[in-house]
Amino acid sequence: MCRVASEGIPARLTALLSARGADLGVSWADSVTASLGGRITRAEVERELDEIYTALVAALGRGSLDARGEAFGEVRALLTELSRNRARQGFSPVETAVGVFALKEVLEPSLSGADGDVEAYLRFAGLLDALGLFTMEVYSRTREDLISAQAEQLLELSTPVVKLWDGVIGVPLVGTLDSARTMVVMEKMLQALVDSESEQAIIDITGVPAVDTEVAQHLLKTVVAARMMGAECTISGIRPQIAQTIVALGIDFGDIVTKATLADALQHALRRSGVVLTRTAPVAGS
């Protein structure tokens, strides 16, 4: 490794970035604004890039080229903020990292030409690559945090257990049914069966987008638990596409009664609990 030369590189880059600061900044902001398709204003982009630019020059001024090193702490903090904002605003990872990679393109003409400082350019490109990857990393971590936060919110979104009739409760399920949510649903349903002294429960899956083996297993467990308490479950809201998928998967719901609609299931549950519904002539005027 050529220590002397590489030690000089941060200084050479600092000189170049400071000397050409204004017009580099303009081309950088141009390139980033264009790639974001107007979803962030030019002024906003300039403000973000200006801060990053200043921090970058300061870090180089401390003689470092190590993106993960201490000197670049401020740069990383700014990039973290930028990535988090972009992730929350729904920008793609590429649109996020372009902020960093664009600077490379902007600098390329002045560094990589015949009389350019190729060595400095290559080291600078390497540094920006590392910072770009860092940006992507923060971006994906933010997205993952957002997703798990949403998952928790969904879980907290109380699963309502409603009384449909004397002795009949209904549990409308919406969204995906994972292990954590099943636990919540099951507990609520069993408690409601006890509290309302019901012997019939209808689990409606109209709002469940797909029933795979995991969801099916959870449904089956819930039904078995209800049976142990002397209650019967009917599963309703099985749409045609779900029915076909369940059959192709090979899932067998055994002797559990399934119905296409909640109305059918209610009729079935009432019949089982001995309620007879009869239709009479509509009463005029009431």
Partner: peptide, 28 residues
Amino acid sequence: ARQLVRAFAQECRLSLVEQTKFVTAASE
């Protein structure tokens, strides 16, 4: 994965039944 597959299946204009089958397979 399920969400991404659903988006691809819709863009590819699979029927609702085919979409559901494919998303379920992807989920497994």
